[in-house]
C-alpha cells in the first residue's frame, strides 16, 4: 500500500503547478518577442522608460508582494543609484556598465543600512521609517555639492558599452536596456520561486508562525530588503543613462508613492502585475502630458476606481478570472 501511494505522490508531484509554471515562461517569451519588435511601432525612449519603471515596480513588488513589507521610501534607492551612476559616467568617465554597477552597489549598501534599522518595526511604522530615511536622502541630494542641487546632473554621456558599442543611438540602447531589464525580471522571478522565496512568502503570511518553525525572520527580511533596494537601484541607474539625467524627481517622495501605485494598480504579489501597472502609469504620463496638471487628477481617479473595482489589481483580477497564478 505504501509503495503504491508513494508512486502516486511522485507522479502527482511531477504534475504540480510548482517550480516554474509553464504558462509563466510562455508569457515571458511572448512579452520578450513583443518588446523586440515594439520599437518599430513605438518610440524607443518611451519604451525604455516603461522598462525602467517596470523593473522598479517589480523590485518593490518583491518586497511588498512577497515579503509583505511596504516601503514608502524606495525612491531613495532608485534616486541615489541614479545619481551615483550619472556622476560616475560624467565626472569619472566610467563605461555605462560600470556606472550602472556602481549605482546598484550604492543602492545595495544604502538598502543594508536603512533596511537593518527599518525591519525592527512592523506595518505602518516600517513604512514611516523608510519614508523618513528617504527624506534624509532627498535632502542630502539637494544639499550635497556633487549632485547639482536643483539642476541635477545633466548631459550624462551614454558612452560605449564595454568600451565597444556606441549607445548614442536610441535603438541600440533600447536593446541593451531590454536585456538588462529582462535579465533582472527573470532574476526576480527566480528569487520568488526559490527555497528562499518560499520562506519569504511564509513570513509574509504569518511571521510569528515562521519564528516558531525556527526561521530567523529578520535575516530573511533584511536579505529581501537589500535585494529589492539593489534592483530598484538597477532601474534608477539605467534610467539615468537612458535620459542622461539624474534629478531630484528621482529621489522625491512622490516617486516612492508612484511606484507603490504602479504595483498596486498592476497587482501586488503577482509576477506580471508591476509591469502592467508601470506601463499604464507611464503611458498616462506621456500621452496625457497635454492635460498638464490634470494628469495627476486622472491618475488619482484611476487609482480610486481600481481600488473600488479591482482591489487585487489588473493582473490580480485577471488571475482570479483565469484561475491561474500570473
Amino acid at each position: 500500500m505504501t509503495t503504491q501511494s508513494e508512486t502516486g505522490y511522485r507522479s502527482e508531484a511531477a504534475a504540480l503547478p510548482i517550480g516554474t509554471p509553464r504558462h509563466h515562461m510562455v508569457i515571458f517569451a511572448v512579452l520578450f518577442g513583443l518588446l523586440l519588435v515594439a520599437p518599430s511601432v513605438l518610440y524607443p525612449v518611451f519604451l525604455m522608460k516603461v522598462l525602467c519603471f517596470a523593473l522598479f515596480a517589480s523590485a518593490l513588488n518583491l518586497l511588498l508582494g512577497f515579503g509583505g513589507l511596504l516601503s514608502f521610501g524606495h525612491a531613495a534607492f532608485f534616486g541615489s543609484s541614479s545619481y551615483v551612476a550619472a556622476y560616475a559616467a560624467k565626472a569619472w568617465g566610467f563605461n555605462p556598465e560600470f556606472a550602472i554597477l556602481l549605482g546598484v552597489l550604492a543602492a545595495a549598501v544604502l538598502g543594508l543600512g536603512i533596511g537593518a534599522l527599518a525591519i525592527r518595526r512592523q506595518g505602518i511604522y516600517f513604512a514611516m521609517v523608510t519614508l523618513a530615511f528617504a527624506q534624509m536622502v532627498f535632502f542630502f541630494a539637494l544639499q550635497a555639492p556633487f549632485t547639482g542641487g536643483e539642476d541635477g546632473i545633466q548631459a550624462v554621456p551614454r558612452g560605449r558599452l564595454f568600451g565597444l558599442i556606441d549607445l548614442s543611438s536610441d535603438l541600440t540602447l533600447y536593446f541593451v536596456v531590454l536585456a538588462i531589464v529582462f535579465g533582472a525580471l527573470l532574476l526576480i522571478y527566480r528569487i520568488i520561486h526559490s527555497p528562499f522565496g518560499q520562506v519569504l512568502k511564509a513570513i509574509r503570511d504569518n511571521e510569528p508562525r515562521s519564528v516558531s518553525l525556527g526561521y530567523k525572520v529578520n535575516r530573511y527580511k533584511l536579505a529581501v530588503f537589500v535585494m529589492s533596494a539593489a534592483l530598484a537601484g538597477l532601474a534608477g541607474a539605467t534610467k539615468a543613462i537612458v535620459f542622461q539625467l539624474a534629478s531630484l524627481t528621482d529621489v522625491y517622495w512622490t516617486m516612492s508613492g508612484e511606484v507603490v501605485l504602479m504595483t498596486l494598480l498592476g497587482g501586488m504579489g503577482t509576477v506580471f502585475g508591476p509591469l502592467i501597472g508601470a506601463a499604464v502609469i507611464v503611458t498616462m504620463q506621456n500621452y496625457f502630458a497635454g492635460f498638464g496638471a490634470w494628469v495627476t487628477v486622472l491618475q488619482g481617479a484611476i487609482f480610486v476606481v481600481s481600488v473600488l473595482l479591482f482591489r487585487e489589481g489588473i493582473v490580480g483580477v485577471l488571475a482570479k478570472w483565469l484561475k491561474k497564478p500570473l
Binding site: I18, G19, T20, R190, S194, P195, F196, G197, K216, Y220
Partner: peptide, 13 residues
Amino acid sequence: DSFDFWRSQKVLH
C-alpha cells in the same frame, strides 16, 4: 537556512 535565492524551488521536490 534557506538563503539560496538563486536556486529553483525544484530542489524542494
